[in-house]
């Protein structure tokens, strides 16, 4: 299997304000969010990053999506360096996170066209792809409704459609089902599996064990910015279920402070 994503010991530290220092009960002026993290993902698989809140999952994905740069280390997406060639990387990935918002004023139809143009998608391809994605997610009925007037679930589906206007080979989703009802969440997870069927690589971050167990081929467990375990889901869950494995690891690292 082709290694399509290769993360090589990336690290990221953030400056802490004096207020944050008190909250963190730390004298250090910086906080290491991601600490020397390495992993790989292969073509046609769904890779899950599992970890508690504040473990560094989102920071890792933001670095892969080139929103922020690692302090050290590098990652290669289909051969392009996130540090040296961020523009190339941006053309190869689709990134979805709650941090990215769509302008309330516009309609899904307009936004799909707008982002297609920015990704330089040819007009014929764009029209066909829009029809396909809009009907799959049921956006077609709302395609002329301003984003401001859409429900949370519909907004999420529009964001999803817009993030893959250029049909990228690597799709990075940060907490894909957060805040969605069970029906919308199922539409999203089904779609992730469909992407995988079509040979795409999907990287998701989550703290929901069931989501990982349902869709992921491989999983990396992150605690305090470090990759503790990274392996096939089957290998990891050969003896115990994922939840038990996770808590065993968590206790080992952090003691009993849960």
């Amino acid at each position: 299997m082709k290694e399509i994503l290769k993360v090589e010991s990336i690290s990221k530290t953030f400056k802490l304000s004096s207020k944050q220092q008190k909250v963190e009960k730390s004298n250090s002026k910086t906080k290491t969010a991601v600490d020397n993290l390495s992993f790989s993902a292969y073509e046609g698989e769904i890779f899950g990053l599992l970890g508690p809140n504040g473990a560094g999952k989102t920071t890792t994905l933001r670095m892969l999506a080139t929103l922020i740069k690692p302090d050290s280390g590098d990652a290669f997406i289909d051969g392009s360096s996130i540090v040296k060639n961020p523009d190339e990387v941006r053309g190869k990935i689709g990134f979805l996170t709650s941090e990215l918002k769509l302008e309330d004023f516009f309609t899904p139809d307009f936004l799909f066209d707008f982002f297609s143009d920015l990704h330089k998608v040819p007009d014929e391809v764009r029209i066909q792809r829009k029809e396909e994605l809009f009907s799959k997610f049921g956006i077609d009925k709302f395609s002329q409704v301003k984003v401001a007037n859409l429900s949370t679930g519909m907004k999420q589906k529009v964001s999803l459609a817009v993030s893959i206007v250029h049909d990228p080979n690597i799709i990075i989703f940060d907490e894909p089902t957060n805040g969605l009802d069970v029906i919308t969440a199922k539409v999203v997870t089904d779609f992730l599996e469909e992407l995988k069927q079509r040979g795409k690589t999907v990287i998701v971050s989550t703290h929901i064990f069931s989501l990982i167990e349902k869709i992921c081929d491989r999983v990396g467990i992150i605690i305090d910015g470090k990759m503790i375990v990274c392996d096939d889901l089957k290998t990891i869950t050969s003896e115990k279920n994922l939840e038990d494995v996770f808590f065993d690891i968590y206790r080992e690292r952090k003691g009993d402070e849960i």
Partner: peptide, 17 residues
């Protein structure tokens, strides 16, 4: 405004220079 509403980030993850 776009920074505050988080819509500028959507623009920044496109390959647009």
């Amino acid at each position: 405004g776009e920074k505050e509403r988080g819509t500028i980030a959507s623009l920044l993850i496109t390959p647009t220079p």
